[in-house]
Design a protein around this nucleic acid. Structure first.
Lengths: 191, 191
DNA sequence: TAGTTTCGCTACAACTTGTAGCGGATTGGG
DNA sequence: CCCAATCCGCTACAAGTTGTAGCGAAACTA
């Protein structure tokens, strides 16, 4: 048996309000009070749905971040370049600064942590599919170290944005893609 | 003319208390109230010295983080490996998780931002000195792209710890060092 | 109709941050 | 020697955020 059905429209209003406030004010200035106010709801409505601010924001990102493309461009080289460009698009938004705070909060809420991990995995999946296609084509003969590859693609972008606080230029993205490509083709360098 | 001199011992007590609480409870659980209490001082004493919690923690890190070694090991290859190992030592501590929160807070306090940037530059300097030595030796003939190199060394470590939440194994560090080394020796791959 | 769940709303306790202000202590300059 | 300046210890306060509790009313199902 079931009681009064949950108002799905309220979910989307809360997610939209979160996305709006996140992109305008940043993660740190985002409060559940403001989210509820902008959604025309109450703070308790948020607590009934999400375990924390971090969890709410992860779901908002999941719904609003530009996707990582997963199309066969014909060669591993251009596939990787496309994926790098897509990651860069996400990392280039000005409000991404505040996501350091999200990463911090995620570590304190198991629900948010799970949601975040699933999102990260989903967004990383196109890389392994590029590789699967390259293996099919015969461009690659051995399976590369996938976790290392992920760190090698997203890590420099993340570091440059977060620590160096520089823009991601096309030349920079080319360099990162080329390095990742070479590591895949030639394998990890011997010691 | 001068008034009553500042109690330097109080500074060190506050920094020590901060380091102690930071390493035991993490950045997020660190409050100025607790710091003052553990130092046998008052919250206002902290505000009189630092502009924010972030600023206080940056100064504490500066005083306590294991340094990045800057010794001539004889070859660029082993120099890089030593630097990577030192960075990894800092990134491997369990309480480093909370430093995402620090990175977030730093963006909101100009004083803390400046202190953080200076610390990051000081800790990154050994890399450029490795390269200077390699140029002297003739191991390198052209100057590598320094910012890219920094991202290529610290970025994957950071990403693996923060996003992948995996340990930094010796094999992993070898791989990262080898990739950085190859990029330096062979230059950025052509498009 | 009875039972269950959500909804809108108010309220509360606890904590953190940042600032203000006071009397007293300590120092150097005049 | 006195005075101005500065630091110290301490109390107090305003403002904001978090998380939880609870209530009557609405909406749906069996």
């Amino acid at each position: 048996m079931a009681g009064r059905p949950r108002n799905a429209y309220l979910d989307t209003r809360l997610l939209d309000a979160t996305w709006s406030l996140l992109t305008s004010d940043g993660y740190d200035a985002l409060t559940l009070t403001n989210v509820a106010a902008q959604a025309g709801a109450h703070r308790t409505d948020v607590y009934r749905r999400w375990s924390s601010k971090a969890h709410l924001v992860v779901d908002t990102l999941e719904a609003n971040l530009p996707p990582i493309s997963d199309v066969d461009t014909g060669s591993l080289r251009s596939d990787i370049r496309a994926v790098v460009a897509d990651f860069a698009a996400s990392w280039s938004s000005p409000w991404i600064d505040g996501l350091m705070g999200l990463a911090a909060d995620v570590q304190r809420d198991p629900d948010a942590e799970l949601a975040f991990r699933q999102m990260a995995e989903r967004r990383g999946a196109p890389v392994s599919r590029c590789i699967a296609r390259a293996l099919d084509r015969g461009e690659l003969t051995t399976m590369p170290d996938l976790p290392l590859l992920g760190d090698l693609i997203e890590g420099p972008l993340m570091h440059r944005r977060m620590v160096g606080r520089q823009l991601l230029t096309p030349e920079y993205l080319d360099a990162v893609a080329a390095i990742a490509y070479r590591v895949m083709i030639e394998g990890k360098p011997a010691r």
